[in-house]
Design a protein around this nucleic acid. Structure first.
Lengths: 145, 145
DNA sequence: GAATAATAGTTGATTTTGTAACTAACAAGA
DNA sequence: TCTTGTTAGTTACAAAATCAACTATTATTC
């Protein structure tokens, strides 16, 4: 019995997913990186705060599935740029409640608009039904839902 | 006219794709990283050589969509572990023809089997038709085809 | 209410990646 | 042939991610 040889790396899901993720991130990266000098970790934190309102670092970490050290450093940078403020939670003084400043909110809104436009652009490659299905599958693979 | 607020980060393609890619890579990563002490760049190079036979670094870079520095370092490590041999191409002495050693081939076969099993596992979450469609869409997003 | 364990977040050391500059070899045109 | 340009691959340095250890605070247990 000979070894089967129909394995194609380019069909291997983890490979394909990583490649698709990388490629589809490039365009948007140009916006937040080149134009706003931000890292991926930073816009993700910014987006969470803009999107869901006041949160703690821990909550962001859970939603964004990001390690706490990444969050800590992203928060530090955003705070330094006066995009967010940190206030100790008086019920649990270990954690801080993070909120966007007006300046942070402005940047969030600008970036969100870019994100929406970018998303629309990406979607043009597919039918509406395909996009829905794709999202559904990705969410399942991502372990969301 | 008020700002629309139906933007959900968890539906944003670059975000979802990255998350799905990360999550779906974790299981396989445990195999090549913990059990074989390899990096993602290294198994990718190994897989290309095992899959397509003798190649140059440049060819691998094109197929795998990896930067030449990553390849260079991965090749150095694999060579150091005696998983591959490098021989100067006499027609173009700038490049080297890379080939797996018997030891490298063994590891490739083991890892490929793991990859196939892992892929099957991942696929169980979807119907066969969904998998085909998902691959198709990912390839398009990845800029392949 | 001490003592111990657990949690939120930070910091430092190490590893990995990204960027740019570099070497060596080939290619093309004058 | 000599200059200029291009390409394959490496190396050095900077940026970023990972991992472990740490501080401060809260929760638990005896």
């Amino acid at each position: 019995m000979t070894e089967k040889d129909d394995f194609d790396l380019r069909n291997f899901m983890p490979f394909l997913l990583n490649l698709a993720a990388e490629q589809s991130s490039l365009g948007f990266q140009r916006t937040y990186k080149n134009r706003y000098g931000m890292l991926r970790t930073e816009w993700r934190v910014l987006f969470h705060l803009g999107n869901y309102g006041e949160m703690t670092a821990k909550e962001i970490g859970e939603r964004a599935v990001m390690h706490k050290t990444k969050i800590s450093r992203a928060v530090a940078k955003l705070s330094q740029r006066r995009y967010l403020t940190r206030t100790r939670d008086e019920h649990d003084r270990r954690s801080e409640r993070l909120t966007l400043t007006p300046a942070g909110l402005v940047v969030y809104r600008e970036l969100r608009q870019e994100a929406e436009a970018y998303e629309t652009q990406l979607g043009k490659q597919f039918t509406a039904g395909e996009v829905v299905l794709l999202r559904m599958m990705l969410r399942r693979l991502a372990g969301l839902d």
